[in-house]
Each structure stands twice: as C-alpha cells, then as structure tokens.
C-alpha cells in the first residue's frame, strides 16, 4: 500500500513541477499581458494543485492541510488574475488582437467610462 502511494505521489509531483515550469515559460514567450495571464494562471494552478496533492499522498498525515492549500490555490489564482486583467484594461493597455471583425467587445465600455470621466 505504502509503495503504491509512493509511486502515485511521485507521478503527481513530477506532473506538477512540469506544469509549473510550463507556466513560467508561457510568461516569457507570450506577447502581451492578457496572454501571459492566461498561460501563467492556468498552468500554475494545476501545477501547484498536483504537486501539493502528491506530497499529501506521500505523507498521509498532511492530507487535510494539503487539501486546504489546494482549495485556496484554486480560489485565489483566478480571482487575482481577473483583478489584474481588469486593472490593466482600465489603465488603457489594449490587447493584441488577432484577425477578424469586431474582436474587442470591451472597448465600448472603456470608451464610455472615459467619456463620463471627461464630462465630470
């Protein structure tokens, strides 16, 4: 039983560390803030969750705290990335847009807010 848990936990730790690395690589390679947020948030969330769960499997006494940490990472990472993305757009950092018509649906909201600011 102990050996099986050890093998599964090791695999979880390995997958977790590889995804953490891929998140950091995505931050370096992507062209603008929003794409960097996409790569950074998703990959590090699953990476951290998987690594911490792996340690929890290796050391069964710690599993409660490991689950608390996993839940905390799962809640906090998307919230902070959402706050950052909105802050960057409100500062006027417009995203790089791909090919296609009418790609930036949030621009109208930004323009309306700017107009109201000028009026007041």
């Amino acid at each position: 039983m102990r050996e099986v848990l050890e093998i599964i936990g090791g695999i979880f730790i390995l997958i977790g560390s590889i995804f953490l690395f891929l998140g950091a690589l995505g931050i370096v390679r992507m062209p603008d803030v929003y794409n960097r947020l996409q790569a950074g948030t998703k990959a590090t969330t699953l990476g951290g969750m998987s690594l911490i769960l792996g340690v929890g499997l290796l050391e069964p006494d710690w599993i409660f705290k490991a689950i608390i940490l996993v839940l905390f990472i799962g809640f906090s990472n998307p919230i902070s990335s959402h706050a950052l993305a909105r802050a960057m757009y409100k500062r006027g950092r417009f995203p790089i847009l791909g090919k296609g018509e009418n790609m930036d649906a949030y621009r109208e909201v930004y323009d309306k807010n700017k107009e109201e600011e000028v009026k007041s």
């Binding site: 730790i13 977790g16 560390s17 953490l20 998140g23 950091a24 931050i27 803030v33 960097r36 947020l37 950074g40 948030t41 590090t44 969330t45 990476g47 951290g48 690594l51 911490i52 340690v55 290796l58 050391e59 710690w62 490991a66 940490l69 990472i73 990472n77 902070s80 990335s81 950052l84 802050a87 960057m88 500062r91 950092r93």
Partner: peptide, 26 residues
C-alpha cells in the same frame, strides 16, 4: 515592460514558491 507584466510574474513566483515550500517540507 509594464507594471502589469511584473505583477503577473510575481503571481506566478508566489505559486511556484508555495509549491516549493510544500515539497521542501516533505
């Protein structure tokens, strides 16, 4: 180039460090 990029990097560093501390604990 911008403050936002630095903050994204800080966020990622935090998550990596949390995972790293748990592994160090083991």
């Amino acid at each position: 180039p911008t403050a936002g990029d630095r903050t994204v990097a800080l966020d990622t560093l935090t998550t990596i460090m949390v995972a790293g501390l748990v592994l160090l604990a083991y």
